[in-house]
Design a protein around this nucleic acid. Structure first.
Lengths: 337, 337
DNA sequence: GCGACGTATGACACCGGTTGACATATCGGG
DNA sequence: CCCGATATGTCAACCGGTGTCATACGTCGC
């Protein structure tokens, strides 16, 4: 009963050849309907599930793909994983979610090992592994298809899905300008993420277009985490002539700014507007809820998976972002209205 | 160069028998140090990584375990995954993180399929899959070892790791009482998590011990998410005689209470104390930062994995929790001090 | 009526390792 | 000097599927 059934057991039970069972398993065209049904009944009777290992070993495809990541934002990764899963499930493909450490000297070997050990058919790279030379090189040498989610470099070389970070930052900055803000602080992201530069670029472009002079001291470095948002926010608010709005390059840092402002007793959003980026769960759980850029993470992951599974030529797909208005923005504060 | 090397290639290159390479691969005792080194060099030269599929197929162990979950809290799952990974990595074991939907009628089959397809050696169940009868039954029939993280039922049947939810809730409630609070609101968790009841129990026990009458209308239902915290908070604050402190059964709901309080213009924490549970990243990113119970998720996951890999008898391990004091608690508010 | 062709099924080697039984060789110790 | 522990090799079988090739049966066109 609980002994593992194999394909021969099924074949015997159905009174057919092993190969025929295999054909049914793989949806081979030349199988009569009656035969298919008979075999399927036998499989169900025996509680048969084909061994992935055996299929890998003998076949040419493994029906497995790997998602490689080194991102410590739980929300980001859970969204990415969810998108990949969804698509894999629909295609009957197994997903191996595999964290690596790009800081390790042997990342290349880790990836090489993963691929050759597991025989995965393809790889999805999520930021910032997307721009890790060692990994890209290893994958290239292995001659395995891969798709990158939000890569920062070498767009042309491989398939990729991404959003327009510069335009999104431009949109948000413009939105703040339209609200009446003229002094807008900006908190940059970690320099290892290429998107950081794009977002800064968009901020500057919007300023330029509006004829507002770029003030370098209004731009603070950040690390994409809460604490760096806290200190960057403090430094901006300590300025002799502080900004009326602060645009952080992600939600975590925006939350840090919010916390700093709260602890100074500022009325929010009246006395300080704070904008985020990414639209993680955080954006809704802080107060006031963050106006932020919705980055379509699930869709990015799903699209990447779709492209990978679909095979075919190198494809690039830009997905649209959205500016989500919540409660953290207001017109600039004036002492006496 | 990029052609896949197999064990025979390695044997040839090292000038030894295939069997010897296999011995090295499996850490067999009777292998001299020099031989081990020679074989390892050959493996490195050839970029050889043993095919997991082949090892599974021929060997008795797969060196793979699966983590099965159906939890939509990103932070919780990322911690659990991290703990499992850490331990697996140390033991050279591959981890398959596998989401399932316990609401589906065929969860049992999903799990059965997963296990027989992948040949995993063992399973880690995380809440709330830990208490899904269909899954437990399937696993039992398959006769595969598994460990449960924070199960709510049938503690004795399988190995498990957990914390003392009741005691933790008791600790927090007592802490609030010691601060001077007498009217303490409580927001329950989702009823599918057994921990919800334990936490409520702890709250009541602390009240009893302090001689404070339990008031049923101070207990609100919740779903473990932000929104339910929001509405529960609103209902508590709308009470004719609202509580001076609110203890939510997790951080997300506590964040909801905070948001509701903020939007009513309450000074926090002076006019309302809010306590959370879990110590997720959220607890630090909201303002005021939540005083909460630190649930040792990484350690729970690591310990569970350790137990699973170690094999052996049924083991139960209780891990300690910690009350983390941050900024969301204050003595009860009085209009005129 | 015959060869070509599409459809449906079967026989068998093989993927890349592990396992086990057995052979052999070296080395220390009693 | 023999015994046992250590160290390595040979060989065949096997794990559970798939690829390749062969076979058998219609049916279609000429």
């Amino acid at each position: 009963m609980s002994e593992r059934a194999n394909i021969r057991d099924v074949a015997a039970r159905a009174g057919v050849a092993v190969k025929t069972v295999s054909r049914v398993l793989n949806g081979h065209p030349y199988v009569s309907a009656s035969m298919r049904e008979r075999v399927e009944r036998a499989m169900a009777d025996l509680g048969f599930y084909p061994s992935v290992a055996a299929r890998i070993l003998s076949g040419s495809k493994s029906n497995q793909i790997a998602l490689i990541y080194d991102n410590h934002s739980p929300y980001y990764m859970s969204q990415i994983q969810a998108g990949c899963w969804e698509c894999c499930k629909a295609h009957g493909i197994r997903l191996l979610a595999q964290p690596v450490a790009i800081a390790d000297a042997d990342v290349g070997d880790q990836v090489r090992g993963l691929v050759t050990e597991t025989h995965v058919d393809g790889i999805i790279l999520s930021s910032p592994v997307t721009d890790c030379a060692a990994v890209l090189h290893a994958l290239d040498a292995l001659d395995i298809p891969f798709v990158r989610i939000s890569p920062g470099t070498n767009h042309a070389l491989t398939s990729s899905v991404f959003m327009d970070d510069a335009q999104a930052a431009d949109d948000m900055t413009t939105h703040l300008i339209n609200l009446g803000h003229r002094r807008i602080g900006f908190i940059k992201g970690h320099s290892s993420h290429m998107a950081s530069d794009d977002r800064l670029f968009g901020y500057r472009r919007a300023l330029d277009r509006a004829g507002i002079a770029f003030e370098p001291h209004l731009v603070m470095p950040g690390e994409f985490d809460f604490d760096s948002g806290l200190v960057a926010g403090a430094r901006l608010l300590d300025l002799p002539h502080p900004p009326s709005a602060i645009f952080a390059a992600n939600d975590d840092m925006a939350a840090g700014v919010l916390a700093e402002a709260h602890s100074r007793g500022l009325a929010l959003p009246e006395q300080l507007s704070v904008a985020g980026f990414d639209d993680t769960t955080l954006a809704r759980t802080v107060w006031p809820a963050l106006t932020t850029i919705h980055q379509p993470m699930i869709e990015l992951a799903r699209t990447a998976t779709e492209i990978l599974i679909g095979g075919g030529d190198i494809t690039h797909r830009r997905l649209p972002h959205t500016l989500i208005e919540r409660a953290s923005l207001a017109p600039p504060f004036r002492m006496i209205p």
